[in-house]
Design a protein around this nucleic acid. Structure first.
Lengths: 190, 190
DNA sequence: GGCTACCTTCCTACCGATAGGTAGTCTATG
DNA sequence: CATAGACTACCTATCGGTAGGAAGGTAGCC
């Protein structure tokens, strides 16, 4: 068996706790309680909390890559806005954050290996955005004076930041309302 | 004496640690070590870590209000961009975050009283932005089709989010480069 | 089939470090 | 002589992690 049931459940519960409380906001004890085993049993599946953390990042990266692949032929603006729909879905589910957002907030207290995995995936998402923006410009849908990298930074910053403000003010609508702003930023004005 | 030297030093060191590591990232022990006293002595000045947290928020709010007052007659766009200069200054000083940004990331694990103080100050900053945007529109410097509240949300989200990404990628320039985007968003196009 | 050896996964019990916080005391200053 | 502010000593809870053993399945071998 490639992946045991317990291991899968631990990663799932871990991700849920991670997205709600942060990596330093939950313990192995919490996970053990939720999946109904004792804490030391988790060490049969993960050598350390750091290893679980790396698994959770890989897990989310896998999800995101599959999602991107599935929507790669959708209209470009829909794909970009899809990122905000994902954030909105997380937020409506018990005030969760996107894993990248919550982990980047704890960056300074994370093990080095997790910092790297996090930075790598954020770069991956940035490259995904840059590619879409370039395609949109070439197709004549987006303004030709956009700097694709700079624009990707703006979209990522908006996405990270709006999640914090939405939770702070209990206003999940705010996340989706950023979509109009993104369109306004990207699309050619008539 | 309204405020003792030790108390002042504790708040200062606490704020520095807060902005670097988050509220859950430092302990009373850390503060005590840095200011050269023993941990229990801090309880002569703060009844709890929560009380210190509230003091630190009040401290930052006081700083911000004084800063806003000092610059209230500057050109409007300079005032708004000033927010990003503040963030940039924090980031270049040992990867610090603005206190509101770092605390909002830990929102779910914060005592209720601190959540309220944080939400209140974020609203205050939002109102400050809304006021400036309205003034800019009335003065003919900004586009007339802007929704001031919505625009303030965009600026705040950009500010919060860009700090995370700047630290993640060790790229403090990214914070200041948002200024051009803000101008582009606000100012009338020729 | 029956035996041994091993691996996985769970358990109880425990470790040292650290967290926030308390009790009681000493000492300098007003 | 009271108070503020420092101290030593200690509390309970929790953290990440380890030691050692029991239960169950499996693989190789006679």
């Amino acid at each position: 068996m490639v992946e045991s049931k317990t291991r899968r459940e631990a990663i799932e519960e871990g991700r849920s706790l991670l997205q709600k409380l942060g990596f330093n906001g939950f313990s192995f004890q919490d996970i053990a309680n939720r999946i109904g085993i004792k804490k030391p049993s988790l060490y049969a599946h993960f050598a350390s909390k750091e290893e679980l953390g790396l698994e959770m990042i890989a897990h989310y990266r896998h999800d995101f890559e599959r999602w991107a692949e599935k929507h790669k032929n959708d209209p470009i603006i829909d794909q970009i806005e899809g990122l905000f729909r994902i954030f909105s879905k997380f937020a409506r589910d018990q005030n969760k954050f996107c894993p990248l957002t919550v982990l980047s907030a704890e960056f300074q207290t994370l093990p080095i290996s997790m910092r790297k995995a996090l930075t790598d995936m954020t770069r991956f998402q940035e490259a995904w955005l840059v590619d879409l923006i370039q395609k949109g410009i070439r197709a004549g849908h987006f303004r030709t004076d956009l700097d694709p990298l700079q624009t990707a930074h703006i979209i990522q910053s908006l996405g990270f930041g709006v999640q914090h403000l939405a939770r702070l003010h209990q206003d999940t609508d705010r996340i989706l309302s950023m979509q109009a702003q993104i369109r306004n930023l990207l699309e050619v004005r008539p």
